[in-house]
Design a protein around this nucleic acid. Structure first.
Lengths: 194, 194, 194, 194
DNA sequence: AATGAATGAGCTTTCATTCAT
DNA sequence: AATGAATGAAAGCTCATTCAT
């Protein structure tokens, strides 16, 4: 829990991602990680209570950069369907960039931690999308007789799963553009207010 | 993998599910499992090449009983929307019955095995739904300008994720009926041919 | 907890005594012990639940051989003072033979285990001496207005401590014979019925 | 070992006793102790060369307060039997007050240090009692044909062991008064000059 | 004198797997 | 086919000690 140190926390996080991407979760030892990070074994435990606390930290990081990326790119955009396009695009981008670790991390979360932790990490993303959906309803862009909470979670899940199937499951029969379009249209048909 | 050996294979599979449900994947040892199954340590390796081969076997089992359950219940049903309702209902039932292991198993698959294995296990389920969708298109029950392969996978993913959020993530703000209805309507809106 | 094996339990016990005698308790690792015993690391844990369970086992062994030795040597002896002489002599003998480990073991017992364990291990020895004392009272060999339970424990303690001071604390100003005599006479003065 | 430094030495000693009393010797880390003492990790090593030097310091403290207590309370008393009563009483008092640490400390001494250190620490106490015994012999209060050195050590050992059995081993079948009386009479019978 | 982040050797324990019976 | 004792590599974690500030 040291504070003003040479970014050791980030060093460990980064090394973890590298090592886990390469060797998988089970095969990655703390010893591997500290070696990569260039620190001593014991130092790891100054920043993380245990090896298991690595996974939520990585997940948090992943979710955070996704939401940050989306937020950045929708500057000025008001239209729900424009925002949805950004969400889809950004999710695909992040998934592509971290394809080697993304499933492992979500899996690791399920295995070692309660679902509550999962919900907690996703909460900011969910909340943000709920706001967007509510505004879209007010603007008559999407239908109104939906459960907003359920819908926000379903959209994020659907987009992430599709992205994982595309990049990780190699379900790449079509071009990226066609694939994105498929996701977008599926959601648009379900939510568009005529 | 003999099946005429006093059902030891099934005994091991069942014991594995019990033990993993209770202790989680990481904490479950082969020793725990054989103790539960009432067999000797070495016997395990007569039926499974290694501990890692347990997870795909359990996953296969889970997917198989789901598809079998659905098939059984749609006897005589022709209408796509009736079938979709059965899929949703059966998925929720199975998820409820195996909530303690379902995430662990899917996670375990991701961690220790290539995504190819995952695709392979789901293939029969995917194929079956593709058939159903194609028939529905022919019968003008659903729209036709969709990617059938992508849609079958997306439907199954969406339904399973919703079920997991309901039973495992405890996203139970509404009754089961209302929840099912939400899933059904979301898909119907997206696919229904007016 | 295997049963009919090549005396591995005893092998471990013996190796433990050797190693601990040489290096002390803290510095003795399970790794040292199994190396000395000529078995694999994991095998240790088939016979002892943990490293800590070694100490009570050694203590039990020490107490048992002492009591067995005494019992053997008093065959036919009826006189209390003859028996007491044997107790003193045998305690000195055992203390001499195991001087390098005896304190460590008793200390280890105190540190890692409740005093109840200690009492439990000594119980047979205490009980045996209580019987002897009671008979001596009946035979008018010793005074009768004593607390038998307290006295049995005090005698054993006193003799053992004296032995430890002689062999371990090197309080060897006198010959062994004179020393034994001192112990004997101290107790005799306190208990003899004139 | 500075004594003019804000009493940090004593602070560490006191914190050590607290921590070791609560967690046992093995489980007590320097980290625990400095936290309790409210000082920095490194500061510990300004006052103690190593963790092992803690135990003799605590032992020394214990023996010193016992002897000081006895000396204080026998002011003016000349009679050997009165003094013996004080020794018994004070030993019981100290044992009661420090029951959680007393065995651990003596054990720690045995484990990490040579018996010589033990002898050295006890020397003042032993010497003091030898004087008392010699005077008692001159005053014809006790018998004279004894080994004074051996007897002084035996008395202290016997009293301390009895106290430990009473307070630590919970050998409390009788009241404290009866117990004290038992100890006193046992020694009196052995040493009293008729 | 005081700090506390950093170190890294070293420990106990677990457990998948093997193999002689 | 079945057994279960034996294996030994490997892992997570602790902690006494150091040292730059």
């Amino acid at each position: 829990m040291p504070s003003s140190t040479g970014g050791k926390y980030d060093k460990i996080l980064k090394a973890s991602i590298d090592v886990i991407s390469e060797k998988g979760l089970d095969k990655s030892s703390v010893s591997d990680i500290v070696k990569k990070a260039g620190i001593a074994q014991g130092t790891f435990y100054l920043y993380f209570p245990s090896k298991n606390d690595l996974i939520p930290a990585i997940a948090d990081n992943l979710i955070t950069i996704t939401l940050d990326g989306v937020r950045e790119r929708i500057q000025g955009k008001e239209n729900f369907w424009d925002i949805l396009e950004v969400v889809i695009d950004e999710t695909l981008k992040i998934t592509d960039a971290h394809k080697d670790i993304i499933v492992l991390v979500y899996s690791g979360l399920s295995i070692n931690h309660s679902m509550e932790k999962w919900e907690l990490l996703y909460r900011p993303y969910y909340d943000w999308l709920e706001d967007i959906i509510n505004k879209a309803i007010q603007n008559n862009e999407i239908i109104s007789n939906i459960n907003v909470k359920w819908t926000s979670r379903t959209i994020i899940n659907l987009v992430e799963n599709a992205a994982e199937r595309y990049y990780i499951g190699r379900e790449q029969d079509d071009t990226l553009e066609v694939f994105k379009d498929e996701v977008f249209k599926f959601l648009r048909r379900s939510l568009f207010r005529t």
